[in-house]
Simulated scan of single mutants.
Amino acid sequence: MMKKILLVLDSGDSALLARDYALQLAKRHQCALTALALIDGAPLLEGEAMPPGGFAYRMARDASMEQRWLDNARGLLDGVRDQAGELDVALASVLAEDGRPEDELVRHAPLHDLLVVSTDSHLGESERPHDSRWLENYLLNPARPMLLFSADTVLPEHPRCVVLAYDGSPCAARALQQFVFLGLAHDLPRKVIANHTDPQEAERLACEGAAYLAGHGLPSEPVALTARGSNSQILIAAADSHGAALLVMGAFGHNSWKERLFGSTTRTLMKHCHVPLLMFH
Rank of each mutant, 00 (worst) to 15 (best):
S232P: 07
H108G: 02
K3L: 04
P52G: 11
F262S: 04
S150F: 02
D167H: 09
S11E: 15
L278E: 07
I193K: 00
F181C: 06
G217Q: 05
P199G: 04
W257I: 02
P156D: 04
Y166A: 09
L176P: 00
A22H: 12
S64V: 09
Q30Y: 03
V275G: 00
L278G: 09
S64I: 00
E221D: 14
A237N: 13
T197P: 01
G85Q: 12
L105H: 01
A63R: 11
Q178L: 06
R19C: 15
L148C: 13
L213Y: 09
I193Y: 04
G53V: 09
G183A: 07
G53Y: 07
A73P: 08
S118Y: 10
L213S: 10
L23G: 05
N141Y: 05
I39Q: 09
A185R: 13
D113N: 09
F262T: 08
H196S: 07
E66A: 15
V94A: 14
R74N: 15
L277N: 02
G250Y: 10
V275P: 03
P129K: 10
L115C: 04
H112S: 00
A175K: 01
M59D: 15
K3I: 00
A90T: 13
F181S: 12
A172Y: 01
L70N: 07
S121P: 01
A49Y: 11
W257C: 00
L225N: 00
F179M: 05
V154A: 11
L123Y: 11
